[in-house]
Simulated scan of single mutants.
Amino acid sequence: MPKVHVFARDHINTDEIIPARHLTTDVEAELAPYAMEDYDKGFVRRVQSGDIIVAGADFGCGSSREHAVWALRGAGVSAVIAPNFARIYYRNSINNGFLALECAGIVEAFADGDEADLDLKGGTITNKRTGQTLTFVPVPQFALDVQKAGGWLEYMKERDDAAAAQAAQGEPTHA
Rank of each mutant, 00 (worst) to 15 (best):
M1I: 13
M1V: 14
R9C: 04
R9Y: 06
H11F: 13
H11L: 11
D15A: 02
I17R: 02
A20L: 02
E28V: 14
A29C: 10
E30G: 06
E30L: 12
P33L: 07
D38A: 14
D40A: 15
D40G: 13
G42W: 11
F43E: 04
R46I: 14
V47G: 03
S49G: 14
A55E: 01
A55F: 05
D58K: 11
D58R: 13
C61P: 03
S64I: 09
H67P: 01
A68M: 05
W70I: 08
A71F: 02
R73Q: 14
S78P: 06
I81C: 02
A82Q: 02
P83V: 06
A86L: 05
Y89M: 09
A100F: 06
L101P: 00
I106L: 00
E108T: 09
F110S: 03
G113S: 04
D119G: 08
D119Y: 07
K121Y: 11
G123K: 12
T124P: 01
T126K: 12
K128G: 00
Q132W: 04
T133M: 06
T135R: 13
P140K: 13
Q147W: 10
K148A: 15
A149K: 06
W152V: 11
M156S: 11
R159Y: 04
A162R: 10
A162L: 07
A163W: 04
A165K: 15
Q166G: 11
Q166W: 07
A167C: 08
A167K: 15
H174W: 12
H174N: 08
H174A: 11
